[in-house]
């Protein structure tokens, strides 16, 4: 009753259908996620920068730390999704300072113990903020522990060694170095050579030896 005639027109439609399908899949699975990633990075950078305006002297801090952190993480063999997460963590690590009074952040004199407590609460506040957003919930640990030191002298939990997430260990060293070489209300900018020396001395006690050596190696290559 019915003849199947595969004419040139049928072939044409098959080719068109396949082209549209492949194009659309390409856009939705590759181009769109890439574009959205760009939007997230741009927006998160802007929000981090907004918090930085509060804390005079830290403008650009998060962005510089993010660059260094990503480079170190790459050297440590992180790829793709992990790398993306660590970049967000670096940008957002100080977002908790949004809820720390400006007067304390910019104080020139030494802080009182209560004030120190308030400043130190920024890692916890930041982790809480990030945990409230489903898209970023998995990086709250990195932010919570970005001021922990290898020997357990950091805050808020005083974690030691491998108990600190790797991402937080990278963040700690990158953030400390950038803080040393920039001008802050409570200290002048260090000479980069002195800062490197300081970091080198603390590898093994404050900083993870593996992360530290890669970090120093990168700095000596001038990147």
């Amino acid at each position: 009753m019915f003849n199947y005639q595969i004419t040139a027109g049928v072939w044409l439609f098959i080719v068109i259908a396949l082209t549209i399908s492949i194009l659309s899949l390409y856009v939705s699975r590759w181009y769109l996620p890439m574009k959205m990633k760009g939007a997230y990075l741009k927006s998160i950078t802007a929000l981090a920068a907004a918090v930085e305006t509060k804390d005079s002297g830290t403008v650009g801090h998060a962005q510089r730390v993010a660059q260094v952190t990503v480079a170190v993480a790459k050297k440590l063999g992180m790829t793709g999704h992990d790398l993306e997460r660590i970049e967000y963590a670096a940008l957002l690590m100080d977002i908790g300072k949004a809820n720390v009074p400006q007067a304390i952040l910019n104080k020139k004199d030494p802080l009182t113990p209560e004030e120190l407590e308030i400043v130190r609460s920024h890692s916890k506040l930041g982790a809480e903020m990030v945990a409230a957003v489903p898209f970023l919930a998995d990086i709250d640990k990195y932010i919570l522990h970005h001021h922990e030191y290898w020997d357990g002298t950091g805050y808020p939990a005083g974690l030691k060694g491998e108990a600190i997430p790797l991402a937080s260990r990278i963040l700690a060293i990158a953030a400390d170095y950038d803080a040393m070489i920039s001008e802050r209300p409570y200290h002048h900018a260090w000479n980069p050579a002195d800062a490197i020396e300081e970091i080198r001395e603390n590898i093994g006690n404050k900083y993870d030896a593996k992360v530290g050596s890669i970090f120093l190696e990168m700095l000596s290559h001038g990147s």
Partner: peptide
């Protein structure tokens, strides 16, 4: 395929606006 693309686009957009709005709202907290 186009329907999948459209749904994906709407969902991504929604997630983005929600994420950034929530984060920014917490910052003013």
């Amino acid at each position: 395929a186009l329907r999948d693309f459209f749904n994906q686009w709407v969902a991504e957009r929604e997630a983005y606006v929600n994420t950034i709005t929530t984060l920014a709202t917490y910052m003013q907290h």
